[in-house]
C-alpha cells in the first residue's frame, strides 16, 4: 500500500484536473447564465407592472425556499418521468443557473435601487430613454456595488457544484470520491478535495479584489 504522502501527490493533479475541467467550467457557465436570469428577474421585480413584479417575487421565493440538491434532483431524476430527459451536464448547468438567478436577482435589485434617483433624471434630461439610462448610467454604477456580494455568490456556487457529483458529472469532488472508493483512504482524499476547493477559492478571491479595485477607480477614497 502506498504511503499517505505518495497517494496525496499522485491524486493531486487528477483532482485539480477534475476541478479545471469540471468544477470551474460548470460554475462559470452557470454563473453567466444565472446573471442573465438574475438581471431579468431583478428588472421584473422593480417593474411597476404588478404581474411582472409578482412573477419575479414568486421565482425568488421558490428558488430561495427550496434546497439546491432538491432542485438538481427534480431536473435530472424527476423530469424524465414526464418525458424530459436531460444529460448530466446540461441538467447541472440548468439547476445551478436557475439557483444563481434567484439569489443574484436580489443583489442586483438592491444595487440598482442604491443608485440615486438623480442619476436616472440626469439620463432623462439629456434625452435618454428608460432603457438607455439603465444600460449606460445605472447598471455600470450598480455593477460596482454588486461585485462583493456577487463574488460571494460565485464562490458559493463553485463549492455547490460538488452536488453535481450526485448526478454523475465528473468534477473535482467526484474524482476524489472515485479515487477514495478505490484506495479506501476516505479521510485523506476528502481532506485533499477540501484543500483544493480552498485553493481555488483563494484564487477567485484575489480576482474579486482586482475587479473591485478596477471598478473603484472613479470613487473618492
Amino acid at each position: 500500500m502506498a504511503s499517505g504522502w505518495q497517494l496525496f501527490l499522485e491524486s493531486f493533479w487528477p483532482i485539480v484536473w477534475g476541478g479545471l475541467s469540471g468544477t470551474i467550467p460548470l460554475a462559470l457557465a452557470s454563473f453567466a447564465i444565472g446573471l442573465v436570469i438574475a438581471l431579468a428577474v431583478a428588472l421584473a421585480r422593480i417593474s411597476r407592472n404588478r404581474v411582472l413584479s409578482g412573477i419575479g417575487r414568486f421565482y425568488v421565493s421558490v428558488i430561495r425556499g427550496t434546497p439546491l440538491l432538491v432542485q438538481l434532483f427534480v431536473i435530472f431524476y424527476g423530469l424524465p418521468a414526464v418525458g424530459i430527459v436531460i444529460d448530466p451536464w446540461p441538467s447541472a448547468i440548468a439547476a445551478f443557473s436557475l439557483n444563481v438567478g434567484g439569489y443574484a436577482a436580489e443583489i442586483i435589485r438592491a444595487a440598482i435601487l442604491s443608485v440615486p434617483k438623480g442619476q436616472w433624471e440626469a439620463g432623462y434630461t439629456i434625452g435618454m430613454s428608460h432603457a438607455t439610462a439603465l444600460r449606460r448610467i445605472i447598471l455600470p454604477q450598480a455593477a460596482r456595488v454588486s461585485v462583493p456580494p456577487l463574488s460571494n455568490t460565485f464562490i458559493s456556487l463553485v463549492k455547490d457544484t460538488s452536488l453535481a457529483s450526485l448526478i454523475l458529472v465528473t468534477e473535482l469532488f467526484r474524482v476524489s470520491q472515485e479515487i477514495a472508493a478505490f484506495t479506501q483512504d476516505f479521510m485523506l482524499l476528502y481532506l485533499e478535495a477540501a484543500l483544493i476547493y480552498w485553493l481555488f477559492c483563494l484564487v477567485l478571491s484575489s480576482g474579486q479584489n482586482a475587479l473591485e479595485r478596477r471598478l473603484d477607480r472613479y470613487v473618492a477614497h
Binding site: 438623480g118 433624471e121 440626469a122 434630461t125 448610467i137 455600470p140 454604477q141 472613479y218
Partner: peptide
C-alpha cells in the same frame, strides 16, 4: 436641466 446636486455620472 442643470441640477442642484450636479448629478454628473460618476463612472
Amino acid at each position: 436641466m442643470v441640477f442642484q446636486q450636479h448629478n454628473l455620472f460618476p463612472h
